[in-house]
Amino acid sequence: MAAPLELFCWKGGWGLPSVNTECLTVLAYAKFAGAPLKVHKIANPWRSPTGSLPALKTPEEGSLSQPSKIIIQLKKQKYNADYDLSAKEGADALAFISLLEEKLLPALIYTLWVDPKNYVDVTRRWHGENIPFPLNFFLPGRMQSRQLDRLRLVRGDSRLEPGDETEKELYRDALECMDLLSQRLASHKFFFGDSPSSLDAHVFGHLAPLLKMKLPNAKLQQHLKSMDNLSNFCSNILTLYFPSEGEDTPGRKFSSQPESSDFDNEPHKRRNQVLSVLVALGAMLSYALLTGILSIQHVRPQGALDSSERHGVGAHEEEDDD
């Protein structure tokens, strides 16, 4: 292993190492497998080599952005968290990952991106505050419409709209999925034996955001919190594998938030000031160009033409004079 692998993912919030399910999954897997990654936590998907997050930059195979591909790539580099699984356990892991993707993910997308209250109060707000300046005006909206599109296509219903009917259907599947996971996990620490596997990473990625985010519409959250083994499973992984984020408990978060946000906002403020001055200057200049100085710009070529014409005419006149 010569060059280190670089992983780009969404930055953290709410005491999570990342706010995005796919990024969380990959981060957790890398921790479980002990892969030494250089992690860039950013809030601007345009800075990622693939244009989306998460993305893994490898020296040999370019950049990968799908979590499943990233995990396969890590496995190829001998960072395999599923090494100890028997063939049958490997099959079970694959099956439960499918269960998560089919049953829980649509509801998760719905609750974060489609549910109007959650989207406006939490998702859009977080992205608006964290994505750098000009992008934060349109990127959250674009991400939302992409997620809604995806939900429609996956559900095979092109007229799917946010509403009670859709919500009920999606949440029913999600609650069932959580029940099944809880039954499968029972009182174990991880899904297979004593060490975490790729399934644990996926479950963590899907459940931890639900557990930690402060959502106004919290039906899924309440159900998850009522299942002790699943919520303990998530907090266990947080404290064991992400100790720096795990310390950030809600109680402390409030006290530390103003300081950190002030500190974070300082460069933004400066940049915004510079930008507003630039915008004002630009407006003044363009106004000036459109009214007074406009003529100057056009005079030059015209002046050149005029002078040549005048010269020409002058020559004619001279000829005439002769």
Partner: peptide, 8 residues
């Protein structure tokens, strides 16, 4: 739970 998972 396993049966449902394999169906998915």
């Amino acid at each position: 739970a396993e049966m449902k998972a394999y169906m998915e």
